[in-house]
Amino acid sequence: MVETIVRTALLGIQYGMTLALIATGLTLIFGMLDVINFAHGALYMLGAYFGWVVASTLGSFWLALLLAPLFVGVVGVAIEVLSLRPLYDRNPLYHILLTFGFAIMIQGAVVELWGGQTKQIAEPASLAGTLTIGSFDYPMYRLFVLVVSTLLIGVIWLAVERSDLGILMRASAHDSEMVDALGIDVSKVFTGVFVFGAVLAGFAGVLLGVSRSVNPGMGFGIIIEAFVIVVIGGLGSFRGAIYTALLIGLVSSFGALVASTLTEIFLFVLMAGVLMVRPNGLFGATEAT
């Protein structure tokens, strides 16, 4: 019994950290740019596909993990510069329609290029096998995902909350004209943030494309879950997104144990519950439009 609980908790944390990877980019983009990025899931999917292409042609998972996110970053630059940049002063609703359009386009393009067949990125040989914890086998690769995502999020945390870069980013979001007046090119900061979010989504795509299947529907599959996390945490709140991702991870894994058919509903019950008590999310300070 105790073992089942410990084990389920571990699985929940692992699941939560992978969600955090995706939610982090989403919340950063919203926090800084005020953009609700519906294409975030599509970028995650694109990362997985690029990763699959690199891994299967060059035969190296590590190269895939390095290159694929950069390719996604390039797509991110194109989207930001060509479409978002002229639209920052518009009502954020238009960003939904715009990024929705991109999400559909990317999904269509992926089916066009690689077909809809489910793929999977080959596991690196060095991370094959399992690690036995008590009487429980834990796959090495999943452990690797847990460690990498935790480290990555830790680094981003420090960067956003402690460094000058983070201060600059937040300042740009808060008062872009002031930052502009200081001689810093705000539009470059915005591009940077968007691309960073895209790279992060792409990275998550490659990382998860090994232990999960790669398919065109994966982007739309994850986007609502990621949104729910960002909203419960409080739009734009970095900490909120991470705590909530972990919470959702735990709720899902324990939920699967208790009432497996209803796990999907827990997510929304949780969101409704939180928002009714705290209408701006757990860590949302200001009101969003």
Partner: peptide
């Protein structure tokens, strides 16, 4: 498990705990 589940980890815990010698499954595609 709900259709479209990404991560089967916790469901596998349950399957393992059942102590069965065999599993019969219906899942398709991804």
């Amino acid at each position: 498990a709900p259709l479209g589940t990404d991560d089967y980890s916790s469901y596998l815990t349950e399957i393992e705990n059942s102590g069965a010698d065999a599993v019969f499954s219906f899942f398709a595609g991804s």
